[in-house]
């Protein structure tokens, strides 16, 4: 079994449901066990390069640290919390610390799930699958595909605009109004060009008989097999098992207790 072959919609569904379940719990162990599980699955069944994975993961590590930091500095104080350290308006409590770590790990658990999806799914397959399995209207799906096609063009155009601004002697934006002006100088030409191209593309698609009709025979059929559902069940079970382990260890907390 390879993660690359799992149906993209089922894979996305598994990730989203896992995240929704993880959001219910509020302790460090549940996300931690999930992280270990997902990372193992990603590398064994996804065969992704560690370098690519780390590149995507690193920013989340940073975000997780900020989460821990914010929660520790601006904690929700509750009666009975044990204060570890106090300095001016800052109060660090044991409970606050634990909640911070829980939040940080939660961010990382979401990240590992998402990276697993991103690194093992082809964009067009995802779109074809959304159309074939999730009944995304063809009009919208092909619209997205057409728009997605413009990306390399937009990138080239962006670089040309940068050069053009140098040649014309446009000064570097320093103040906020200048920055807004600069944003406009890039976004408007890019959008104007893209919109006119989009109108031409729409005409070209209609000229090939595209009406947005829902029953369509697809050249590339994306199927759902039993293995896909097996994957789905495995993923969800793993998250629930993580929570179970946490409960056994006596850490498990529900979100409600916090409210």
């Amino acid at each position: 079994m390879s993660l690359h072959e799992v149906n993209p919609s089922v894979k996305a569904f598994a990730v989203v449901i896992s995240i929704l379940i993880l959001s219910v719990f509020f302790d460090p162990i549940t996300p931690l066990v999930t992280i270990l599980w997902v990372v193992t699955v990603t590398f064994i069944f996804g065969r992704v390069s560690f370098k690519k994975w780390l590149l995507l993961f690193a920013p989340f590590l940073f975000i997780a640290i900020i989460y821990v930091w914010s929660t520790m500095l601006f904690p929700r104080l509750q009666a009975g919390d044990s204060v570890i350290w106090e300095w001016g308006f800052l109060t660090l409590t044991a409970e606050g610390f634990q909640r911070g770590v829980s939040l940080g790990l939660r961010v990382l658990s979401f990240a590992t799930l998402s990276i697993m999806f991103t690194l093992t799914t082809k964009p067009t397959d995802f779109l074809l699958s959304l159309m074939q399995q999730c009944k995304l209207p063809p009009k919208l799906a092909y619209g997205i595909m057409a728009g997605y096609r413009f990306l390399p063009l937009i990138k080239e155009e962006f670089q040309t605009l940068q050069n053009a601004h140098r040649v014309r002697g446009v000064a570097r934006a320093r103040t906020i109004p200048e920055k807004v002006q600069q944003l406009k100088r890039y976004v408007i030409p890019l959008l104007a060009g893209a919109i006119r191209k989009a109108e031409r593309t729409a005409l070209a698609m209609e000229s090939k008989g595209f009406t947005g009709e829902k029953n369509r025979i697809f050249y590339r059929e994306i199927t759902v097999s039993r293995i896909d559902w097996l994957f789905f069940i495995l993923m969800i079970s793993a998250v629930i098992l993580s929570a179970f382990i946490s409960w056994k260890l006596g850490y498990l907390q529900y979100y409600n207790r916090e409210l």
Binding site: K139, L140, G143, I144, A146, G147, Y148, F150, L151, I154, V187, L190, L191, A194, I195, K197, A198, E199, T201, A202, M205, G212
Partner: peptide, 10 residues
Amino acid sequence: VIVLSVLAVV
């Protein structure tokens, strides 16, 4: 629809 998609892409 296509213009909407292209706006979204940008």
